[in-house]
Amino acid sequence: MAATQEEIVAGLAEIVNEIAGIPAEDVKPEKSFTDDLDVDSLSMVEVVVAAEERFDVKIPDDDVKNLKTVRDATEYILKHQG
């Protein structure tokens, strides 16, 4: 069953916590991965791969650069999840 918006944000929060060590409660839709959450370009790849597995979605490298905020990623996953 497809994940809801809330489930995706919560899932991304867990992933960011696991990879960058940021408290999950700090991961909110308006937060920028790079500027607010200390997720650099390489960690972002790890976040994306973890999100792909968790939400059954493919996020090609060309699309990764457009995912600036948690909201961007959430909307992308909502639209593309299997």
Partner: peptide, 12 residues
């Protein structure tokens, strides 16, 4: 090189 693409390929 394209850093992010190389990183994803190399790691996973």
């Amino acid at each position: 090189q394209e850093g992010q693409t190389v990183f994803r390929w190399a790691v996973f």
